[in-house]
């Protein structure tokens, strides 16, 4: 392929095919205009969106759909802010009614300051949603036993965190992410923790099918530049994964021939 990504290097989740391996959030931007521009620069085809009460005192306020076209991008409704299974299930039923989509991102969160995935709540909600016909991409702890169980329950993608939501700490658990990657047969993503482009590349080098991030772009000084950086990092990481990295060694191994040296 001469260094180019193979043309058919797409991935499929719940029967839908995508070429971009970057999923971006639509939150925390300065305004909707910046949201739209950053998402365009990221090349993402899937965007996560939140479901919230309409502001009844301002029904004509600009809406996300006016800046991020749901016909062009696949909306992935999330359950951000939900701390119980019941809240998460209600939220996604509303999302399905509002948008007609059954592909969703489930997250049931524990309390601050970690907002770590609440796994009992996650299992309960995943079970109810799958029974109700949803296709569930699930945010989870980086726990291989929990991830396996979610996959066996029928979740369509397993998405452990690399570090706490919004922390930008980068992958704190590369070995565990790799371990879970190895055991997972459905699409596998790192969701949360990416802080800058190299973090996204590392996730892809470990073999993730895609990466989901939001703050790393939205909170960069120049979100549109960072969106472009993420796009390139995802492609670079993916290409490096496909290329197969050289083995690590503890000692040096010279790159130039040792024969023919002048004496």
């Amino acid at each position: 392929m001469d260094g180019a990504l193979p043309g058919d290097d797409s991935w499929t989740v719940a029967g839908r095919r995508f070429h971009s391996r970057l999923i971006v959030g639509t939150g925390r931007y300065k305004d909707l205009e910046e949201t739209g521009a950053a998402i365009a620069a990221s090349g993402a085809e899937i965007v996560t969106v939140a479901v919230r009460r309409v502001n009844l005192s301002d029904p004509k306020a600009p809406m996300l759909q006016d800046y991020v076209d749901p016909k062009k991008y696949t909306y992935l409704p999330n359950t951000a802010g939900c701390h119980t299974a019941n809240e998460a299930v209600r939220t996604l039923r509303l999302a399905r009614e509002a948008g007609g989509w059954n592909l969703v991102k489930l997250e049931v969160l524990g309390p601050p300051p970690t907002l770590y995935p609440d796994m009992p709540g996650t299992f309960e909600a995943a079970e109810a949603l799958i029974k109700d016909g949803f296709e569930v991409m699930v945010y989870t702890a980086d726990d291989p036993v929990a991830c396996k169980r979610l996959e066996e329950m029928g979740c369509v993608a397993v998405m452990p965190l690399g570090a706490p939501i919004g922390s930008g700490l980068g992958l704190q658990n590369a070995a565990m992410i790799w371990t879970i990657r190895e055991q997972t047969k459905v699409p596998f993503l790192v969701d949360a923790g990416v802080g800058t482009a190299s973090d996204a590349a590392i996730a892809m080098e470990l073999g993730c099918d895609a990466v989901l991030l939001n703050s790393a772009i939205a909170h960069a000084k120049d979100p549109i530049k960072m969106a472009r950086a993420m796009k390139l990092a995802i492609e670079a990481g993916r290409l490096a994964y496909l290329a197969g990295r050289m083995p690590r060694r503890l000692g040096a191994d010279p790159s130039s021939p040792l024969t023919g040296l002048i004496r």
Partner: peptide, 10 residues
């Protein structure tokens, strides 16, 4: 009643 819509979110 809850009336909701989509907003930006991560």
């Amino acid at each position: 009643l809850e009336i909701v819509h989509f907003i930006g979110g991560g």
